[in-house]
Simulated scan of single mutants.
Amino acid sequence: MGKEIERKFLVNGTEYRTNSNKIYYKQGYLSVDKERTVRVRIVGKQGFITIKGKNNGISRPEYEYEIPLTEAGEILDNLCLKPIIEKYRHIYRHSDNMVWEIDEFLGDNTGLIVAEIELPTETSLFTKPDWIGKEVTDDPRYYNSNLIRNPFCQWQDI
């Protein structure tokens, strides 16, 4: 079974930009049920479909498959819930050789910047770069699938 073990953090500053690669992401959701999400995504010139199960702590089942780019575009345009999530993802390799993915959201989520780290185990140790802020792993508002129902621009307490 595929498994994702991930922690999420807010970002303080822009230092990550100097040593990272940036790519445009466009993604939408076919299902945002609490038990499962089904996402279609375009990353550069590749299309993907991803099925994620319910979170159990920082882990959840995850299955991802490449699909034809044209079909990914058609699904995003015609079948996915709106709005579509658009963002730039920066890939940053930290000094401990762990990879951080920093998402700078666009559109209704402009201003939101979240860093994620995928871990090999739930107890894996890692060091945080200086620009990593508050952990938001347990806050469902920061799930991409929730940003379509409650975009960042509508948050009152931020």
Rank of each mutant, 00 (worst) to 15 (best):
P61V: 04
Y25C: 10
K26I: 12
L30S: 04
R60T: 03
H94W: 11
N78A: 07
T50P: 05
E104D: 09
E116L: 06
I23H: 11
R93N: 11
P140C: 08
I85F: 09
D96T: 04
I102Q: 10
A115L: 02
G28V: 11
P129A: 05
I113F: 10
L81R: 13
G133F: 03
D108Y: 02
D33K: 11
V11S: 05
F152D: 04
V136L: 03
I75F: 06
R93Q: 15
Y143G: 02
I102E: 08
V38C: 11
I117S: 10
K45V: 03
V136K: 01
Y142F: 14
D103E: 11
V32L: 03
K87M: 05
M1K: 05
I85G: 09
K52H: 05
E62P: 03
Q154V: 09
T50H: 00
L76A: 08
K45E: 14
V40W: 05
Y29G: 10
I132V: 14
A72C: 10
T137P: 03
Y92S: 07
E62V: 09
I102D: 07
L112E: 12
H90C: 09
E116V: 08
P83D: 14
V114G: 07
N109P: 06
G53E: 13
N55L: 12
L76F: 12
G13H: 09
R41G: 10
N19K: 10
I102Y: 07
R149P: 00
I75H: 05
L10P: 01
A115S: 08
C80S: 13
N19A: 13
K45S: 12
A115T: 03
D103Q: 08
K87C: 11
T14I: 09
R141N: 14
C153P: 04
K54I: 13
P83Y: 06
V136I: 10
G111R: 02
D130K: 08
Y29S: 07
T70M: 05
E101F: 06
V11T: 10
S124L: 06
P140Y: 07
I51C: 05
L79W: 14
I91R: 12
K3Y: 02
Q27T: 05
Y25F: 15
P129C: 03
F126Q: 05
K87F: 05
N150A: 06
L10T: 06
Y24Q: 10
Y29M: 05
V38F: 09
I42D: 04
V32W: 00
P140D: 15
R17W: 05
I85R: 08
F152I: 08
D96K: 11
Y92P: 04
L112P: 13
G111D: 02
I91K: 13
R7F: 07
I84T: 15
N56H: 14
P129L: 02
V136A: 03
W100N: 08
I49N: 08
E6F: 02
T37I: 10
F48A: 03
H94P: 00
T70P: 01
P120Q: 09
K34P: 15
I113W: 11
R141S: 13
Y88T: 08
V136N: 04
E62D: 06
N144R: 01
G111M: 03
V32I: 14
L79A: 15
T70G: 00
P140A: 12
M98G: 00
I58T: 09
T127W: 01
P120H: 08
L106K: 15
V40Q: 01
C153L: 00
R141H: 11
E15L: 13
D33S: 15
D103C: 10
E66R: 02
